[in-house]
């Protein structure tokens, strides 16, 4: 049984500050460990296999649109959004040691790429497809990254993004009614 803080310390020791970015326990319920999105699969593997951690179950994987962009003026005076990120939250739990941890990765919305943890926890397979479907987060090395809930021909539109707007037409049908 480890507290999230202990888990954070173990991870920091193992991977260093470059990979394990921060630890946030300012929030009332669960502290968050932030991890580099391109190293998450290694961290995940370690979390699963290390005998002090044994996080064998990925309870849920959720994509989130942080919607934290700041409006800035570029050189020509147009308004532009900057620094907006998409996040993926991994709620982990160890069935053997009965402890939980919440890991998070953030990736810029312009090029949202996260390593897939599908090979670590097969649960992630469909959850990652859903995150891709809803937020457009690209999971690298996912074996079958397709839309899952939305139709295949929904196009480059990701409905759970905060600034999503319904398309005018879908397959020739008028959408807003």
């Amino acid at each position: 049984m480890k507290t999230p803080e202990e888990v954070y310390n173990i991870l920091k020791e193992k991977f260093g500050e470059d990979v394990i970015l921060s630890y946030d326990d300012s929030q009332p319920v669960e502290p968050v460990i932030s991890v580099d999105p391109l190293k998450i699969h290694e961290v995940g593997k370690f979390l699963r296999d290390d005998e002090n951690l044994l996080f064998d179950s990925l309870m849920v994987l959720s994509g989130v649109d942080d919607f934290n962009g700041k409006k800035v003026k570029d050189e020509e005076g147009n308004m532009k959004e900057e620094g907006r990120t998409l996040s993926v939250y991994y709620n982990l739990h160890s069935m053997k040691l009965n402890h939980k941890v919440l890991v998070k990765v953030s990736t810029p919305i312009e090029d949202p790429k996260v390593e897939s943890v599908e090979h670590v926890w097969r649960t992630a397979d469909w959850h990652e497809r859903e995150a891709y479907d809803m937020y457009g987060i690209i999971f690298l090395n996912h074996h079958d990254l397709r839309r899952i809930l939305m139709p295949d021909d929904w196009g480059e539109r990701y409905p759970l993004r905060k600034d999503y707007e319904d398309p005018e037409y879908y397959n020739g049908m008028k959408v807003p009614y």
Binding site: Q27, V29, E30, M59, V60, Y89, N91, K100, L102
Partner: peptide
């Protein structure tokens, strides 16, 4: 402000809500 993941044993398995 915060996040919570709560789960319960539903008839079909673990139903969880991750609320931000």
């Amino acid at each position: 402000k915060g996040n919570v993941y709560v789960r319960a044993e539903n008839p079909k398995g673990e139903l969880g809500f991750f609320i931000l």
